[in-house]
Nucleic acid binder design. Structure first.
Lengths: 204, 204
DNA sequence: CCAAAAGTAAACTATACAGTGTAGTTTACA
DNA sequence: TGTAAACTACACTGTATAGTTTACTTTTGG
C-alpha cells in the first residue's frame, strides 16, 4: 500500500505515523521535532517542509487519528428487537470504541492540550465522537414506539454514555484499572439496568 | 496571621502560594522557577533553599491544595429525613466541591501530570476526595432501614457521583459550559431521580 | 551582641528545543 | 535526459529553563 505512493507522500505519511506514536505515548510537549524526524527516518528539514510548525503537525496528526475512529453509522431503532437488547448492543459498541487503542491514543494526546486550549475542547466536543450524536434520535424513536418515556432526550443520552465513560474509560485512561472484558460486561449490564429503571415506559 | 510567623516560614508560604497560583493557571510545565520566585517576591535561591527541585515544590503545592479541600465528615444516615432529601443534600454538597475554585485548580494542575505519572493517579484516587469514600456506607445504612435496595454498594456510589462529575464537573473543567446554578439544580435533581428509580426499595 | 541561619541579586552552567540556512544528492516527469 | 522539486546531513540561531555559584546583607536566638 505504501510502496505505490510518491516518495513525497510516503515521507509525509511516515512523519505523521511517527508523530502519532510519539505524541500519544509521550505527549506533544515532551516530543521534539528532532525525535519525530528520527523515528520517521526522515531528515528534520523534510519534517518542516511538510509541516511548517509543530502546531500544524499536531493538527494534521489529530485529524489523522480522528479519521481512524470516524464512524458515520446512525443508530437505527429496530421495533422487532427488545429495547434492552438494543441498548446492550449500543453500549457494547461504545465500550469497544472507548477501550480501543486508537481512542485511548487520541485521549492521551489531546487531554493535555485541552486544558490549554478551550477552542480545541469545543471543537472536539462538537465532533460527537461515538454514539452520543445519534443516541437522542434513537431514544426518541423508542419513545414513539412506547418503549421508553423520556422528557429530556439529550440528558438521557448523556447519562447513558457518561456512565460508560466514567466507569470504564477514565479508569483505563489513568491506569487505575486494567482492561477486563468480564468487568466491562458487568458494568454495561448495570448501565442498561440503571437506564431502563428510570426511562422504561410504565406499562399502562 | 502571616505577620506573626518567622520570616523563613513566611517566605515558604509565599512561595507555595505563588506556585499554587501559577501551577493551576498555567500548568506546572509552563511555569518556570524564575517565575515562581518573582511572583512570590523572593529570590530564586530562596525557592531552592526551601524546595530542592521543582518536583518537590510540586509535591508540596499539591499537598497544600489537597489540605484546602480536605473533608473528614462522614455521611450520616438520618432515619427521620426522607431518603430523596438526603441524597439531594449529598449531591448538592458534592457539586459545591466539584465546582469550587479550590477543586478546579487542583484538577487543572494535576490532570496533566496524571497522564505522565500513573502512581500519582493511583494515590489521588485512593484519597477518596469528596463523598465517594463514605457514600457506600451511607447507602448500606439506608438499605438496612429498608429505604434502598442495592446489591453492589461500591458501584451504586460510583454511579451517583460519576453522574455529577460527568454532567457538571468535566464540562466546567474543559470550558465547554459556564457555571449556572439553575442548571446544576436541575442536573442534581435528575441524578437523584435516576438513582432512586434504580435503587429505591420496592414497597412490599 | 554576635555567630549562625536564612535571605538577596545577579551572573553562570548546561541542556533542550523550535525553527532556519546551506550545500549537495535523489526522485519525478516532461 | 535534463530540470525542478523534494530529500539529506549538519551546522547554526535564538530562546527558555533547571539548577548552581558567589559575594554580600538581614534576621534570629542564645
Amino acid at each position: 500500500m505504501m510502496s505505490d505512493m510518491k516518495l513525497s507522500d510516503k515521507k509525509r505519511l511516515q512523519i505523521i505515523e511517527a508523530a502519532v506514536d510519539l505524541f500519544s505515548n509521550s505527549g506533544v510537549d515532551a516530543t521534539s521535532m528532532d525525535m519525530v524526524a528520527k523515528v520517521a527516518q526522515v531528515s528534520k528539514r523534510t519534517v518542516y517542509n511538510h509541516f511548517a510548525t509543530k502546531e500544524l503537525l499536531f493538527s494534521a496528526v489529530l485529524n489523522h487519528m480522528l479519521a481512524d475512529i470516524e464512524c458515520n453509522e446512525r443508530l437505527k431503532f429496530e421495533p422487532t428487537i427488545a429495547i434492552d437488547e438494543q441498548l446492550l448492543q449500543i453500549a457494547q459498541a461504545e465500550v469497544n470504541l472507548l477501550t480501543s487503542d486508537a481512542f485511548l491514543r487520541i485521549a492521551r494526546m489531546t487531554f493535555i492540550q485541552l486544558l490549554h486550549d478551550a477552542k480545541l475542547a469545543q471543537t472536539l466536543n462538537q465532533q460527537h465522537i461515538g454514539c452520543l450524536g445519534t443516541l437522542p434520535n434513537f431514544l426518541a424513536q423508542a419513545c414513539e414506539h412506547g418503549l421508553l418515556s423520556i422528557e429530556d432526550l439529550e440528558l438521557a443520552a448523556k447519562q447513558f454514555v457518561y456512565q460508560l465513560k466514567s466507569l470504564i474509560f477514565y479508569p483505563l485512561l489513568y491506569g487505575i484499572e486494567t482492561p477486563n472484558q468480564q468487568r466491562y460486561d458487568y458494568l454495561i449490564e448495570q448501565t442498561v439496568e440503571l437506564f431502563l429503571a428510570r426511562y422504561a415506559a410504565k406499562i399502562a
